[in-house]
Design a protein around this nucleic acid. Structure first.
Lengths: 193, 193
DNA sequence: CACTATCTGGAACGATCGACAAAGTACCGC
DNA sequence: GCGGTACTTTGTCGATCGTTCCAGATAGTG
C-alpha cells in the first residue's frame, strides 16, 4: 500500500562508508554523499535523519564488515598464534589493499569524532572491547596450554595487540609499504613468546 | 620605517595548534582560529596566507615541540632500554596529560590530511623517518653490545616501536586509561628481549 | 611633529554547508 | 482504474565556510 523504496539501503551506506573513509566526517559534505550514493539529499534525510545518522550507520556497517569477522576468526577455535597472525595479515592487506586511500573508519572516528559524539565513542569502545575480549579468551587459553608466554597477563597482551593493530593503520596511512608493515606485525607477534 | 607586528607569532601558532588537535583540520573554522589566537582574520591571512598555511605552521611547531625532543632523547647516548622506555612513558603522559582532549597532531594529520595535502604527507614521512632512524641507530648499537635481541633487524624493531607509539595515541583517544596504556607500552618493550 | 609603511579588526564577498519543505512519481490494495 | 501512501526529486532556506578588502590605528623615519 505504498511505493517501495527504490534504492538499496545497504549499498547506500556502503558507498557513504567509502566516502567517509576517504575524506573523514567533517571533510565529507552532503553533496559528496548524494553523489556517492546516487540519492537526493531528501532521500538521505528520510532514511537516516541527518549526516550524523548516516555516519553512524556507516560506522556500524564498518564494524559489522571488518571488526566482527575478526572476532569470529579469533573465536574459531584454531591455534592462537595462527589466527592472530591471520588477523594481523588481514589488517595489513586491508590497509594496503588498493590505492583508493580507504583509511580505517575506526581509527579515523577515534581521532576525529570520539571527543565530539558520545554515540561514536560508545561504538568505538564497544568494538575495541569485544576485540580485546576475544583476544583475551584466546590468549588465556593458550597460556594454560603453555603455548605462549605467561610473563604478561592475557589482558595486557590483548590490549597490546589491539594497540599494535591501530598503530599499523596509522603507519599505513603515512607509508603504505606492505612488506614493512608485515614485518612490524611479525615483531608484535614475538611479544607472545 | 613602519609599524611593527604586535602579536607573538609563536603564541598564535601554539593556540592554533591546540585547536587543530582538539577539532581536527576540517572541524576547525577560521572563526575558531580567530578566537583562539585573538587575531582578526586579516592578520592571520597576512601572516600565514591561508588556513592550510596556519595548519602547516602548527604541524611544524608540533614536530619541533614533541617529535624533535624524542629524537634528542634517543640520541642522548644513554642506555637504549632506558631511553626508549622514557619515550614511551612520555608519550603516555602526553596522551593522558589532561582532560583537554588534545589528540596527537601527527596521527590526526595522518588520518585526515595525508591523502589530501602532499606537504602534510612529506612532513609526516620526514618526522616518522627521523624517529625511526634515531631508534635504528640506538637499537643497532645495542644489538652490537648484546643488550637486546638480534632475532629481528634493528630496522624492523624501530619501525615496530614507532607503530606502537602511534597505536597508543589511537587507543588513548578511545580510552584514556593511563595505567592500561602504560602496561601496553611495557609489553611492546618486551619485543626487545 | 608630520609622514608613511605596515598592521589591525571587522565588514562583506561568493560559495557551500546541513537541513528541510513542497511537488512530483511510482506502487500498493481495492 | 482509482485513491492513497510512501518514496524521490528539486529548489531553497539561513547559517557558516574560507577568503579578501578596507578604513582606522600605530610605530618608526626624517
Amino acid at each position: 500500500m505504498a511505493r517501495t523504496r527504490e534504492f538499496d539501503l545497504d549499498a547506500a551506506v556502503n558507498a557513504a562508508m567509502d566516502v567517509f573513509r576517504r575524506k573523514g566526517y567533517e571533510g565529507t559534505s552532503m553533496r559528496d554523499l548524494s553523489e556517492a550514493t546516487g540519492l537526493g539529499s531528501g532521500s538521505i534525510y528520510a532514511a537516516f535523519g541527518s549526516k550524523d545518522g548516516l555516519y553512524l550507520a556507516a560506522l556500524d556497517l564498518y564494524r559489522q564488515r571488518y571488526a566482527a569477522p575478526m572476532v569470529d576468526l579469533l573465536r574459531s577455535g584454531n591455534d592462537a598464534r595462527a589466527v592472530i597472525r591471520e588477523v594481523f595479515i588481514g589488517a595489513v592487506d586491508d590497509i594496503t589493499g588498493d590505492g583508493r586511500h580507504l583509511s580505517c573508519l575506526i581509527v579515523g572516528a577515534s581521532m576525529e569524532r570520539a571527543h565530539q559524539d558520545v554515540r561514536v565513542a560508545e561504538r568505538l569502545r564497544s568494538t575495541t572491547q569485544s576485540l580485546e575480549l576475544a583476544l583475551y579468551d584466546l590468549l588465556a587459553e593458550a597460556q594454560l596450554r603453555g603455548q605462549i608466554t605467561t610473563d604478561r597477563s592475557a589482558t595486557d597482551l590483548a590490549g597490546f595487540l589491539v594497540t599494535s593493530l591501530q598503530g599499523l593503520r596509522v603507519m599505513g596511512a603515512i607509508t603504505p609499504d606492505r612488506a614493512a608493515l608485515t614485518r612490524y606485525a611479525e615483531v608484535a607477534l614475538t611479544c607472545l613468546d
